Amino acid sequence: MNIFKIIDEIQQVDGDAVERLQHASRRSFMTKFSRSMAAAAVPAAMGTIFNKAYAFTPGAIDVLKFALTLEYLEEEFYVKGTSAAGLIPAEYGVVFNQIKKHESQHVNFLKTALGAAAPAKPTFDFTAKGAFADVFTKFDTFVFLSHAFEDTGVRAYKGQAGNLMAKEDEPLLDYALQIHSVEARHAAKARYILSTIRGNTRIKPWISLNEGSPVEVYAGDDNTVQGGTDITGIGGKSLDAVTEAFDEPLTKDAVLAIAGMFIV
């Protein structure tokens, strides 16, 4: 990560950025960071600076709190999963440990950006009151819920992007879109693993109808209405192709309804 390049890009958007960051030069800016700092720690450190330098809108703060609740859920899910003896086969251990690291970085960034306003982590019940009783004993169920949570994260960030369009919220929009793309990669990987362990080639890394989809959590993967328009049959395309080409955002209430299944 090139911190100097980041500063230059910030100044192209906001010419007063360096002054607002209370640093007179690149050199003095860099005193806040050790050149040997691990790259993974940089987003949290940047979050501290942005939180002090930019007056985020109340709507943006609400989005961050909402996002943090989801990231808490995902982080704890992978912490428990990677700690469960005999759950994850050795060939998939690296994958889920890496996803766990990503989710922890997301949590740390959001908590840092929110500071004292960060909500406390809820208590989670990943069985959803018994609906998924074997989530940490059966790998299929674990992977099934993994892609359910990741897909929910993708749609949640997509649904909130429009609420981060104010100029003072632009840094947060950038970070939200970066997290969004990571969540999408997680979802694709979980779907691929589910296809492999079930021996079902109809389950693809991308959404295709509701193949392999966790309809118990979200039943809209086969949705063909986008932007208020039913796109079934446009250009003579199949239902598979239509659902593969579009994905819908979810409202805050819809996402919280999904997350609420797993919050005590």
Rank of each mutant, 00 (worst) to 15 (best):
E74W: 04
E103T: 00
D174Q: 07
N51F: 06
N2R: 03
D151V: 05
A60T: 04
K5A: 10
M261Q: 10
L73F: 06
R198A: 06
F142L: 05
Q226G: 05
R35E: 15
V79K: 08
Q226T: 13
I193F: 07
P119F: 08
F139P: 05
I234Q: 08
I49N: 03
H102A: 08
D14F: 10
I88G: 01
A113W: 03
D62I: 06
P122H: 01
R191C: 03
S36T: 06
S238T: 12
H186N: 01
L173I: 13
E168Q: 07
L114H: 07
K252G: 00
I193E: 03
E168P: 05
L173Y: 07
A38R: 15
E103D: 04
E150P: 12
L209V: 10
T57D: 02
A133F: 08
A259K: 11
N200V: 15
Y218N: 08
E244K: 09
P205R: 12
E170G: 09
A118G: 10
Y78N: 04
A41H: 14
A188D: 03
A148P: 07
H180E: 00
E248L: 13
F66K: 00
L164Q: 03
Y175G: 06
R191Y: 05
D230A: 09
N108A: 11
F262A: 01
M261E: 05
